[in-house]
Each structure stands twice: as C-alpha cells, then as structure tokens.
C-alpha cells in the first residue's frame, strides 16, 4: 500500500510538471497533496496528515484557481463557412491552426478560449474578442482587436511554424 502511494506521488508530480495547461497542473497538485497526506497517515503522523489534506487540497487549490481566473482570457473566434458545425471540422486544417494558437497561448502564458462559430464576421466585431479567424480560398485571415498588443509576436510565431497550405493575412483593426 505504501509503495503504491509513493509511486502515485511520483506519477502525479510528473503530470503536474509536464502538462500544458495550468488548470490541469493545479488539479494534479491537489491529488498529490491527498496522496502525500495518506503517506503521512501510514507513517503514523495523523496530525501532519490532517494539516496537509486541508491546506494542500482545499485551500491552496482554490487559491490557485482564483489566481488563474485573474489571468487575461484570450478569446479566439474561428469562423466556419458552412451552415452548421460538424465534427469533421475538428480534424481538418482548422484543427492544426487551433493547435498552433493554443501552443502560442501556452508560451505567452495566456488562457485561450476558442469558439467555433457560423456567424458573419461583421457581427462578431461587436462581441469582446482578441482574434477572429476566417477561411476563404486565397487566404486565412486573422483580424486582431485594436487593443491586442500580442499580434506582432503571434505573426512571428505563426510564420515560424510549419506553414499552412494557404498563406496568412494579418489585419489589425482600428477603432
């Protein structure tokens, strides 16, 4: 039992370090605290186990989650040309672009929120957004919000990554 829990400790800590998303890392840390509290219990230290279980898995988890919420959320709309959203979209070229964008967000420590939509671009400008992506035959167009100051870095990043079949076009909107 003790050896199993010690193994779980190693596994949870590796997960917490290796995962891409900070939210997942926080949850893994909570699980790590629970298992280390169990280890303390097996080592005959119930006082320490109580303190570790309460502080590690409830107080600090909630504190980290609140801290993550104070992050700037980076909203990305991806316009789909068809009338309805189908599952097939999630395996096509949009998927590679989405993966690259989330990689960029992880590097810049932003919290990405990616929304697929069928609405018209001009209607989307009224929503709060950071980036709107549209697809047509010649270009993949990325519209950036006037206050979006990450656009330069994102342009660099996307051009350095493996280029897509269609070239990119970057447009910074004005007020």
């Amino acid at each position: 039992m003790l050896n199993l829990t010690l193994l779980a400790l190693v596994v949870f800590s590796l997960f917490a370090v290796q995962t891409q998303k900070l939210r997942h890392a926080v949850i893994y840390l909570g699980a790590f605290s629970m298992s280390i509290a169990f280890v303390y219990l097996l080592y005959d230290a119930p006082d320490v186990a109580l303190a570790e279980a309460i502080i590690g898995s409830s107080l600090s988890t909630i504190l980290y989650l609140v801290a993550l919420q104070k992050y700037k959320i980076f909203t990305i709309y991806i316009c789909v040309n068809d009338k309805e959203i189908e599952d097939a979209h999630f395996f096509s070229g949009e998927k590679t672009l989405e993966r690259q964008l989330s990689k960029f967000c992880a590097r810049e420590e932003l919290e990405p929120q990616i929304i697929y939509t069928v609405e018209d671009v001009h209607k989307l400008f009224e929503h709060p957004y950071a980036i709107i992506v549209t697809f047509d035959k010649q270009y993949i167009t990325l519209y950036a919000h006037p206050e979006n100051y990450k656009m330069q870095a994102m342009e660099q990043f996307l051009l350095n990554e493996k280029p897509a079949d269609t070239p990119y076009r970057f447009i910074q909107m004005e007020d």
Binding site: P46, D47, L50, A51, I54, I55, S58, L59, I62, V66
Partner: peptide
Amino acid sequence: SPGGGFQGGAVLSAMFISKYL
C-alpha cells in the same frame, strides 16, 4: 485525539473560503 488548534482553524477557514465559490 489527533488534531488541534491549527488543523481545526484551517477547516473553519476552508468553510469561509468555500462560501466564495
């Protein structure tokens, strides 16, 4: 029994904190 002031206080404050949720 095992426990004491610190642990019990932490449980009580966890109550206040979960109220925020």
